[in-house]
Design a protein around this nucleic acid. Structure first.
Lengths: 352, 352
DNA sequence: CTGTTAGCGCATTCAT
DNA sequence: ATGAATGCGCTAACAG
C-alpha cells in the first residue's frame, strides 16, 4: 500500500522530485503542463504523500490528541463531533483516548500522545492541577475541555456551570419550591463543584437555607443517583425538588422515584443536566440544562489551533477562557410543589 | 516540548545513541549500570521518543484509523471503547473519523488515513462494496465493523443480525402476535437488511404472511421511526406488535405511540435494537436486542492486528468473518396481543 | 556490550 | 521553473 514515493511519481511524470513537492504543497509555481502530468501520475499510482516523513521534516503532525474520561458518557460524543468538525476543516486528525477516570491511564495516554508528536491536546482531565503545571509552563498547546483544573493558568472552554446551576435552581424557586435538593457529582471535577456553587448562590439570594440532608455527593454514576434519590425521598420531610448534576445521576434519580411510586412532577420536581434524544421522550419529559456540547468542542479545537499557530510568539491566547451558556429546557418533570399546586390550578382556572 | 532527542539523552547519560535505542526498544542487553543512567537521563529531560521518526524508519505507525458514520449514535461509543481497550494493550492508538453517512467524506477520511500511514483501518462503511475492492486487493489491513459490504471478499465482525431479527420476531410470535410490523433502516446497510431477513424467515416459519403495510423503510432517524409509527397505528387494522431496527427509530416509534395515546404493551408490543442505560428506565422498560458492542470492537481490533502482523505471509485470516450473537432482553414493552390478554390472565389465574 | 553509520520519504536550500 | 544535496530523529546492521 504505502508503496510509492514522491520519487516514483516524479519519474512517471518525467519531472524532478522537488517539482512534485512544490505541486503538492503549492509552494512554488508549477507550469500547467507539469501540473497535469503530475496529477496524472499521482492518480495512476494512487499515491498518498507520506505524512509521517513530512511530519518528521516540518516538525508538525497535523494530529491532535483528545482524552476524555469515557466516550460512553453521551455528553462526549457530541463534543467530539464538534472537535472533529473543526479539525477536519484545517486538515487535522484526532487521536481519541479514554482515561477511564484514572489519573494513571490519563498520564500514560498523554505520554504516548507526546511521543506521537501531536501538535496539541484537548483534555477533559481526571487528574489534579499539579499534573499539568509543567506541561503548560513548557508552552505545550493544550486546552482544557469541560473539566477545568483549579489553581494553574490554563486555556479552557466549558459550560458556564455556575450559571447553569443557578438557572436550574431559580427555575425551581420560581415555581415555589423551598426544599430543594442537589445531587452532585465528584466535587473535584470543576463542573460539579461549579454547579453546586450556582445552586448555593441562588438559594442564598432567595434566602432559603440549604439543608444538609438535601445535599448528596455522588460519583456521576446511575447507581449513585439512585441511592441519593432513595435516601432523600425517604426522609421524614423529603425535598419537593431535586437537581441532578449530570445525566447519569438523573437516570438513577428517576429510577428511585419510580420505584418508590412517587409521582414526578406532582410530588417531586426533577431537573437534570445534559439533553439527549431520550430525555424528551421520557415519562415525564425531563426538564434539563442542555450543554452546548458541539460548540464546546468546536471552540476548544479553534482555541487549540490558535495556540498551535501562535507558536512561541503570541502570548495573548495562551490563557484564554471560554464559558458557554447552558440552556434551560423546561419540560414536564418540573411543576409547582405539592402544597402550591391547588393554588396554582385555582389561579389558572380563574383566568391567569 | 519535542525538544530533546536520543542524542541528548545519550550525551547526558554518557553513552552512545545506539545504546539508548537498545534500552528503549529492549533490542539488546544493556548493563544495569547504563540502564540506570539512561533512565535517569530520560527522566531528567522528560524525554519522549519520537514515534514519527521511528515510524518512518520501521514502516509502522502503531496507529489505526476508525471511521464510523457518527459517534453520536450511542451504539458506536461502546464499540470504540472495545477497540481502544484492545488497541491500548498492544500500544496502538486510534484516529477517529466521522463519515456523516456521506461516501465522499468517508473517502476523504480514508485518504488522509493512508497518508498518515495508519497500519490498518476499522470501517463501519457508508459506501458500496465497489469502493473497497482495490483496497482489499492490495492487502491493506482492513476489517469491516457492523456494516458489512456485500459482494466482495473481506474480513468483518458484526452482530448476527439475521439471528437477532429472527429471535425478536419469534419472541413476538411466541406471545401470540400475528400482525407484526417491522420498521427497517436503510436496507443498503447490511445490519438492517439482515434484520429484515431474520424477520421474514421467522414469519415464514410460523406461516404468517407479512403484510405490505406493516413493512416500513426508515433511515435510522428518530423522525422516520415516528412517521412509520404514526402511519401504521392509524391503519384500519393496525399491527399488534412492531420491531424497530435501531435505537433511534425505536425512540420515534415510542413517541408516535404516546402521542396517539396508544398504550404499550397493552395495545401494541414493541421491541427495538440496542440496549442503553435509558432503555430500561423508559416507561415502559423496553424489550430490546442488545448488541455486544464492546466485544464487537474488541474482536475487530484483534482481527485487524492479526492482519497487520500476518503481513504478506499469512493468508488464512484475511477474509475471516465473525458474527456475534445479540441478546434478547425481555422487559415490559412486549406482552400478549390484546385479543389474547384475557385468555392469558385467565389461564394464569387458573394455576398456570 | 557499545559506538558508527546509512538511510526511511520528504521539504528545502542553493544552484542552474 | 527545475534538479541535486542535506538532514529531520530514529533503527538496524555492522564493527569493534
Amino acid at each position: 500500500m504505502a508503496k510509492y514515493t514522491m520519487r516514483d511519481v516524479a519519474r512517471l511524470a518525467g519531472v524532478s522530485i522537488a517539482t512534485v513537492s512544490a505541486y503538492i504543497n503549492g509552494t512554488a509555481g508549477v507550469s500547467e503542463r507539469l501540473t497535469a502530468k503530475i496529477a496524472e501520475a499521482m492518480a495512476a499510482l494512487d499515491y498518498h504523500p507520506d505524512q509521517v516523513a513530512r511530519s518528521l521534516k516540518v516538525g508538525r503532525t497535523q494530529v491532535i490528541g483528545m482524552v476524555v474520561p469515557d466516550v460512553t458518557n453521551a455528553f462526549f460524543p457530541e463534543v467530539i463531533r464538534g472537535v472533529e468538525d473543526a479539525a477536519a476543516v484545517e486538515g487535522y486528525s484526532v487521536i481519541l483516548c479514554n482515561s477511564n477516570e484514572d489519573a494513571e491511564q490519563e498520564k500514560r495516554h498523554l505520554s504516548t500522545l507526546f511521543s506521537r508528536r501531536v501538535d496539541g491536546v484537548l483534555l477533559a482531565c481526571t487528574d489534579t492541577a499539579a499534573a499539568y503545571g509543567s506541561l503548560i509552563q513548557r508552552r505545550f498547546p493544550i486546552v482544557f475541555l469541560d473539566r477545568i483544573p483549579q489553581g494553574i493558568p490554563h486555556a479552557g472552554v466549558c459550560t458556564d456551570n455556575e450559571g447553569a446551576g443557578h438557572v436550574a435552581t431559580r427555575h425551581l424557586i420560581g415555581l415555589g419550591h423551598k426544599r430543594i435538593a442537589f445531587v452532585a457529582g465528584n466535587l473535584r471535577h470543576s463542573p460539579h463543584a461549579e454547579r453546586l456553587n450556582g445552586f448555593r448562590k441562588a438559594m442564598q439570594e432567595a434566602n432559603i437555607a440549604v439543608r444538609d440532608e438535601c445535599l448528596r455527593m455522588g460519583d456521576q454514576s446511575i447507581e449513585s443517583g439512585y441511592k441519593a434519590g432513595l435516601e432523600m425521598m425517604r426522609l421524614a420531610v423529603p425535598p419537593t425538588a431535586i437537581i441532578a448534576s449530570n445525566n447519569r445521576m438523573l437516570l438513577g434519580l428517576m429510577r428511585a422515584v419510580n420505584e418508590l411510586k412517587i409521582r414526578c412532577p406532582q410530588q417531586v420536581s426533577i431537573v437534570g443536566f445534559d439533553d439527549f434524544a431520550w430525555t424528551q421522550h421520557f415519562t415525564p419529559p425531563l426538564t434539563v440544562i442542555a450543554q452546548p456540547a458541539h460548540e464546546l468542542g468546536r471552540k476548544a479545537m479553534e482555541m487549540l489551533l490558535g495556540q498551535i499557530r501562535a507558536g512561541e510568539g503570541n502570548e495573548t491566547k495562551r490563557f484564554e477562557n471560554l464559558r458557554l451558556a447552558g440552556e434551560l429546557r423546561v419540560r414536564e418533570s418540573t411543576a409547582r410543589p405539592p402544597a402550591l399546586q391547588l393554588v396554582g390550578k385555582t389561579r389558572r382556572k380563574g383566568g391567569d
